[in-house]
Amino acid sequence: MWGLAEHLAGLQLDELRVANWQRSNEGVKPSKQSKRPTPITRPGTKAKRPDKNSPERVARRHAAKRRAAERRTAIARGEIT
């Protein structure tokens, strides 16, 4: 993990990048401006994306597919209109 000094250095870097971005886009139409710089990633703050192939998600996906197949079968038999 980062300490206070590392977080402050990261903040300085982010602010410097934004200041340079602002100066480089001065007088440029908004539609032609470059994208705003993203902050540097700090330890422990990165949003974790759920694993698409975790056992729980795979089980829910299979259950949903099974329910959809059962529904299509019921519709074909005329049980559901």
Results as ranks from 00 to 15, higher is better:
64 A>P: 02
36 R>I: 09
49 R>Y: 13
45 T>Q: 13
55 P>G: 07
41 T>N: 05
41 T>H: 02
33 Q>I: 00
18 V>Y: 09
62 H>E: 15
6 E>Q: 10
35 K>I: 14
75 I>Q: 13
56 E>D: 06
79 E>K: 03
15 E>H: 14
47 A>C: 08
19 A>E: 02
53 N>A: 05
9 A>F: 07
69 A>E: 13
11 L>Q: 09
65 K>C: 05
62 H>F: 04
28 V>S: 02
81 T>Q: 15
54 S>K: 03
1 M>Y: 15
13 L>P: 01
76 A>W: 04
8 L>P: 04
27 G>P: 05
24 S>P: 00
27 G>H: 04
79 E>H: 03
72 R>V: 05
80 I>R: 14
31 S>A: 13
43 P>F: 11
38 T>A: 08
28 V>G: 04
51 D>F: 01
8 L>I: 04
29 K>C: 05
46 K>L: 15
36 R>G: 04
41 T>G: 06
36 R>M: 12
53 N>F: 15
81 T>V: 04
17 R>G: 05
76 A>M: 04
35 K>G: 12
49 R>Q: 14
25 N>Y: 05
41 T>V: 09
70 E>S: 08
54 S>I: 01
73 T>Q: 12
1 M>D: 09
14 D>R: 05
49 R>G: 11
69 A>D: 12
15 E>W: 10
38 T>D: 10
56 E>T: 06
12 Q>K: 08
19 A>Q: 10
15 E>D: 09
52 K>A: 12
62 H>Y: 05
11 L>S: 10
7 H>I: 03
55 P>M: 07
28 V>W: 02
9 A>L: 11
21 W>P: 02
27 G>R: 01
16 L>C: 07
11 L>H: 08
64 A>T: 03
49 R>K: 13
50 P>L: 11
40 I>T: 09
39 P>C: 10
32 K>D: 11
67 R>N: 10
57 R>F: 08
77 R>T: 07
41 T>A: 10
20 N>I: 10
48 K>R: 13
39 P>E: 08
40 I>W: 12
20 N>F: 13
73 T>P: 01
20 N>K: 14
